[in-house]
Amino acid sequence: MELKRWIQRLLWVFVVFLLVGISSLLHFFSSTYRKIPCEICEFQFDSVPKPNWIVIYPGLVGCGKKCPIALENLRQFQSRFPNTKFSFYFLVTDPKETEEGIQNYLAYYQTSLAIQALRPKSAEEVQFYRRLGAYLPEHPVLKQKDEHGTQFFLIPPNRKVVYALPKLGEDDWIQIQKEMNKE
């Protein structure tokens, strides 16, 4: 009888540990963003006021599919969090794009969103953005097909990491804020 109770207790302890472990794994994998160390963020964005969060969307000038939706998401994101200071950037992913073309493309969006063009200035920056998953087209056919990702990159005021998000969602934003407050 005593052995039977001991086995039952052991089984309950095992079940509790199993449930806690599964819960932890689900929490870990349910996070939709990635946190990546940023070696270049501090000097690349040294002109951005320190309290600002930097939000980057990599896109193609002239894109008529994904970019307009993403840029509208940036505008809505800003309006949902009016007490947070943001600096928005459109990462120009085609190095052959002209300044005039970039400004013409962004002019419409700049009427409701303070967004600036961002161009990688070095091979190191290009590699960094590729590592994040920003598509930098190397073949004109891919550009013509608007083949690029739809990630957003958030850089917190400390400029030490980049959060790569498939979409700008309130749940991820709240989770990132909690993570930042713990540091």
Score class of each variant (00 low, 15 high):
Lys121Thr: 11
Pro49Glu: 12
Gly64Glu: 13
Gly101Ala: 08
Leu10Cys: 15
Gln103Ile: 04
Glu97Lys: 07
Pro120Met: 04
His27Val: 10
Val15Gly: 09
Lys178Leu: 11
Ile54Phe: 01
Pro120Trp: 01
Lys50His: 12
Pro166Gln: 11
Gln8Thr: 13
Phe28Arg: 15
Thr98His: 09
Lys178Cys: 06
Asp146Pro: 02
Pro58Gly: 09
Val92Thr: 08
Gly59Asp: 02
Tyr135Lys: 09
Gln144Asp: 15
Lys85Leu: 09
Arg34Glu: 11
Leu168Glu: 05
Ser79Cys: 07
Ala114Asp: 14
Thr84Gly: 02
Glu183Gly: 08
Phe14Thr: 14
Leu19Thr: 11
Pro140Arg: 06
Ser79Ile: 13
Glu124Thr: 11
Glu99Asp: 13
Tyr57Val: 01
Phe28Thr: 13
Ser79His: 09
Val20Glu: 03
Phe29Gln: 11
Ser23Asn: 14
Glu170Cys: 05
Val55Thr: 07
Leu71Glu: 01
Arg131Phe: 14
Asn104Tyr: 04
Ala164Phe: 01
Glu138Gly: 14
Glu170Thr: 12
Pro140Asp: 07
Phe90Tyr: 05
Gly21Tyr: 03
Ser79Asn: 11
Pro137Leu: 07
Phe88Asp: 00
Val92Ile: 15
Tyr105Pro: 03
Leu118Gln: 07
Ser122Gly: 09
Thr84Pro: 00
Phe90Trp: 03
Lys160Trp: 10
Leu18Asn: 12
Lys50Arg: 15
Leu26Cys: 14
Ile7Gly: 06
Asn73Gln: 12
Leu19Phe: 12
Lys143Ile: 13
Ile102Trp: 01
Phe77Tyr: 04
Asn181Phe: 07
Ile155Val: 11
Arg75Glu: 08
Leu11Glu: 15
